[in-house]
Structures are given as structure tokens and as C-alpha cells.
Amino acid sequence: MPYQEQNTDPQGAFDTYYQGVLSATKEQQADVVVLHFGQMSKERVNDIGFEVESRMRDLGASKGSIKRVFSIIVETLQNIRLHGEKDPKGVQSTYLIVKKDEKGYCVTTGNLIFEENVPSIESRIKYINQLDPEELKDYYMQVLTNGEISHKGGAGLGFITIAMKSKNNLNYRFKPLGDGLSMFELESFVSLN
């Protein structure tokens, strides 16, 4: 059944989507480093950061790649806490999967946003993806030095920082879930040196 016909339960659609992502992950030849599904609290952001750090240390990751993945996780999750929407029951559902394969580490997050915000998010990521590293650094300096904090407390540096730490293009996906809400999935890679 196409999703358009079941548009009254965005939370259910979100859960179903996550289950799909999870089973796809399990089929891949990748080690799952950390998984989270559900409400993302302030404490959870800290805990996940430290959990990933210690798991990566156990996996023998370099200090540099641990810091880069840690940074991506903190920026992504704080972005979601700041801008992510809640479902009709007031839950800010989020999922996070950190996995490792022979190429490197991959951080995937999914959260709810309003469909009307899809174009602005998409154009920001597209803009960042087409910059070369030097242009990205210039753009970062420009935002940093003109740094104005939005009313939500964001500095506008989140996606830029994620792209700089990842050194790869950011992958993203949107999927309408009903009730004017959409899934926003963001995937960043940290290649092994």
C-alpha cells in the first residue's frame, strides 16, 4: 500500500521506516557500533557521544577518526534537538545508527521535520556538497565571524561542521510520513585513513 493512503499516523510510519533501515543494516557486512531509537534527551546526546567514543576505541580506531565521528554525532543530535519536530503525541522521535565497514564509519540519523521545511534544508545541504574543501572553509569562516545565534540557539554551523569533519558529501533523504511531517535522514561518512 502506498504511504499516501495511511497518512494519519506519522509515528507509526516513522517506526516502520526505522525497522526497514535496521533490517537493511543487519543484512550489510557492517559492524553496528551504536544504535538509538526514540526520544532524544540532552543527557542521551552526551551518553551516545561517550558510548561511541569508547566503542570506537575498543575497535582500534585512530584518535582523529574518533574525534571526527564524535563531532558529527554531537552536531547532528544537537541539530535534531534544536530543529526536529515532534509527532502529534509530542515525542521527538529520532534514530541514530553508527556502523563501521571496511571503508570507514557511517553515521545515519533520522528525525521528523515539517514538510514545508524540506526545500530549505535540501538547498543548504546541496550548497555545502558542491563546495570544494577550500570553499567550504571560506564559507565556514564567513558564518563563524558573522556568527549570529538564531532564536533557537543555533549558530548555522551545524551542517558545515558535519561536512568538514566528514570530508565526504552528505547523503540525505526525505520521505513524507503524513500530517505535514516528513522523515529527514542524514548520512555522513568518515573514511578510514
Binding site: 574525534k67 564524535f70 563531532s71 554531537v74 552536531e75 544537537q78 563563524l144 565571524t145 556568527g147 545565534i149 540557539g153 543555533g154 549558530a155 554551523l157 551545524g158 558545515i160 561542521t161
Partner: peptide
């Protein structure tokens, strides 16, 4: 050891 992007603006 680690600085988040919003902390960067405040540290500046």
C-alpha cells in the same frame, strides 16, 4: 579537547 560549533561562536 573538543569544541562544538555553537561553542565556537561563544569562544570567539
Amino acid at each position: 579537547y573538543y569544541i562544538s560549533s555553537s561553542s565556537l561562536i561563544s569562544l570567539l
